[in-house]
Design a protein around this nucleic acid. Structure first.
Lengths: 329, 329
DNA sequence: CTGAAAGCGCTTACAG
DNA sequence: CTGAAAGCGCTTACAG
């Protein structure tokens, strides 16, 4: 079932079939001819072979989104946003999960699916993504000097959260951080320390605890943190899943939130509203983040002269019920 | 940068390059020649063009996973499981989100990425996936007579949940259901009604409420349900997100769980442990579900004579803190 | 307005 | 053990 079959049935040449079906026949092919081609294609149930098309044209109209850990609910929303913009432009976004590995395998596979471009979220772009002949890459939540990127105003977000906590009267503000040394988490850590320093508080080691990326790990880390004395009166968490784990830890220890300890999350995922109490958290427009990233990537795929090198998205603090003044005792 | 460049540099023919680099040269190409080819390829940073390879061989070693709503956290784990089995077999899984649309667009795109096979989760397989020349399709959580499928023991799961609730002394057991008329939800509804009937209870309409698939929608629907009188003493929910919404509704109304009302979820996603109280829920091995589905698909891709038509996965009830005997009043 | 022809970069019999 | 050649199914100048 090839374009030649369609051509025969419609009584035209293969070129004409291609022209009509790709929409490039406009004003070059007679309406009657075009109709005949379309009819024949429908009757035969013909679908152009994408491999052949891509081989010839060099374009697949598909981009890949590489995420570090699909288990984290934010990425679904990022994909949604990216896909929305992509659909409008005639593209599809396919997602690949690196599962906190190096992603070499996955990206190699993605190239094998010859995507026209790559969106890489918060991980160092796998070498396989770069090499010569590789497609354009846009980094998300990952600053870079040599590659275009879309980042988040992490500093502003953490700053707002710390101002909020400091304003409430907290001094011992701990940091429950992700045990992942990527720039996005380093930036959070630095902003936390900066805010403390600016308030004349020492960002001491006993205010810091690291955790793997699961609520179970955060629960264990949180128990450790909340049993230190003096106990922190507030905790800034690197994301909402970690914050959810900390909530569990507080409950394990018979501590109330925000009565005994205030908690701030990051990302404002749906989860933030579902836990008890609902989380005060640093928010950004997650789908928009995906949309923006796709738009930047598309500009690079098209080779636009004014394709943005690096842009960023605002963050803001959403205040819910997990923060309050420190206990008076 | 093509295989011809590599051939020239290594001083061999294009055929030899192909043989060596595809691993099919074993025992057919002299070791020294093979080394020369590999060296040249590395030096040149050569990557075979996947479109050409696929066009010629008809194989992309990529399969697609089509999910109804990537926003739901279960699908991430399904992808993980599928990818794990796929990696072992030299395949990659790419995910496409249909966003509760019909998926025609997405699947067309996936075919354009010429996947070797398709895993379609809980939605009617888009027509674009079927047509002649389409790749093998395996349906997940969606029984079918004409296509291979991997399903869940939904009936057993609901039965266990209802036995648990009935055993606790509940009679007015409501059903918070997904407003999505796919077989997976119809099966849950039927099993719920069956269990009630078997216990001599009428599965009346006032025990039923439908909701869109978000905790916000479920919260609203849940408030409606919990304000009916007499109030249900227990609610079976079509999934954990819906159950989380119901928990919020109970809180809105000043009701305690499980004191005033018991709640059972479905899927046992990480969320089930993060909400308050942790959810009693119908569980299954989510990653294994993905793994199984991939294995079945692979058997069909390979054309194994004994490729399974339809298999199923067990479910079990995980009892946590959201269920207790009904209020004595 | 339409067709004949070349060629995208591989893989795979086939010949030697 | 190695190479020359055909061909996968399209698209795209080019000719008419």
């Amino acid at each position: 079932m090839t374009s030649i079959d369609v051509a025969q049935r419609a009584g035209v040449s293969q070129s004409t079939v291609s022209l009509v079906l790709s929409g490039k026949g406009e004003g070059r092919v007679a309406a009657a001819t075009a109709d005949a081609v379309r009819t024949a294609a429908t009757e035969l149930g013909y679908h152009p072979n994408a491999a052949a098309r891509t081989l010839k044209s060099g374009l697949s109209h598909t981009v890949g989104l590489v995420v570090p850990d699909i288990t984290n609910p934010v990425f679904g929303l990022v994909l949604r946003g990216a896909q929305q913009a992509a659909t409008a432009a005639g593209y599809t976004v396919i997602l690949v999960d690196v599962a906190r590995g190096d992603g070499e395998e996955s990206v190699r596979a993605l190239r094998a699916a010859f995507v026209d471009g790559l969106l890489v979220f918060a991980i160092a772009p796998p070498a396989a993504a770069l090499g010569p002949g590789g497609p354009p890459v846009v980094l998300m939540d990952m600053p870079a000097t040599d590659l275009p990127s879309v980042t988040l105003d992490l500093k502003g977000g953490v700053h707002a959260a710390m101002e909020h906590l400091l304003g409430l009267g907290h001094r011992r503000i701990a940091h429950l951080r992700a045990d992942v040394p990527t720039p996005t988490f380093v930036a959070r850590a630095n902003a936390w320390a900066r805010a403390l320093l600016d308030a004349g508080i020492d960002p001491a080691d006993d205010l810091i605890v690291g955790s793997l990326f699961s609520h179970t790990a955060a629960r264990v880390a949180g128990r450790d943190l909340l049993q230190r004395s003096p106990r922190p009166t507030a905790v800034l968490c690197d994301d909402d899943v970690l914050a959810a784990g900390l909530l569990l830890a507080a409950r394990d220890l018979g501590l109330t939130v925000p009565g005994d300890v205030s908690v701030v999350g990051f990302d404002d995922m749906p989860l933030a509203e579902m836990v008890t109490p609902p989380l005060t958290t640093v928010a950004f427009d997650v789908p928009l983040f995906g949309t923006r990233a796709f738009e930047v990537l598309l500009a690079h795929i098209r080779g636009d002269a004014d394709a943005p090198r690096s842009t960023w998205l605002a963050t803001r603090l959403v205040i819910r019920e997990s923060t309050a003044p420190p206990p008076t005792s």
